[in-house]
Amino acid sequence: MAEVALERVTKVFESRGARVTALTGVDLRIGHDEFVAIVGASGCGKSTLLNLVAGFEHPTSGTVRVDGAAVTRPGPDRGVVFQQSALFPWLTVRQNIAFGPSLAANRARTIRAPGVDQLLKRVGLAAFADHFPSQLSGGMRQRAAIASVLTIDPGVLLMDEPFGALDALTRSLMQDFLLELWEENRKTVLLVTHDIGEAVYLADRLVIMAGHPGRVREIVPVDLPRPRRYALQAEPEFIRLRDHVTRVVREEAAKAAAVEAESAAA
């Protein structure tokens, strides 16, 4: 339960004298328990946007607010699921999930999340509780990572290509799993993905971004009924939306490539 607002956010990276505008004039409002996916060609600033909400980066101008308060640093109210599951390799699965709640900052918060054992069961890892992350498959690791974030009960869930490193079948299963979890316990979700089908399948709204400089190109509401199941991906409406978004993203990618070629020639 939380609301995220980006107000005229601009982010400029400077390295060795070169200035790169990653984001410019981004206005975006994500409602309570809304599931928003951000898609766009690589280099359009979608990960930067997520890092700004997470508090890993600071906007050059503009403000990022969560429930009205400006974001200044990372914190447990905004749980992040990374592409490479960020599990501590020296802790077992159980210890990883118990890590967040044991921190002083979280003992001071009221956390309404299931206990460690319940979460282990929910993500199907009860039998692997005492295994180390290195002993798990990619999909299991990502489920453990999701559990370790859910356990600190963040109002906002930020996911940066969470299934990008998984094989196609596992990815598809993980999408269904994420849908189930989200339907049981709704949260505000911001999902960055390069998989347009995934974005349409999961989200309430899609934000299509354009690059050079990174900005919001189009916002597409996804009015597909919930709860959604795999069969939805064969429905004409799903396909129509996916094709529309794919066309826009491809257009933008072509434009970005042209800009890059031009600046390389100059």
Binding site: G75, F82, F88, G100, A105, N106
Partner: peptide, 16 residues
């Protein structure tokens, strides 16, 4: 770096 960021996100203080 990702582990460091994950720990920050979880709410670790300096000592932790």
């Amino acid at each position: 770096r990702t582990l460091f960021k994950a720990a920050q996100m979880m709410g670790t203080n300096q000592r932790e």
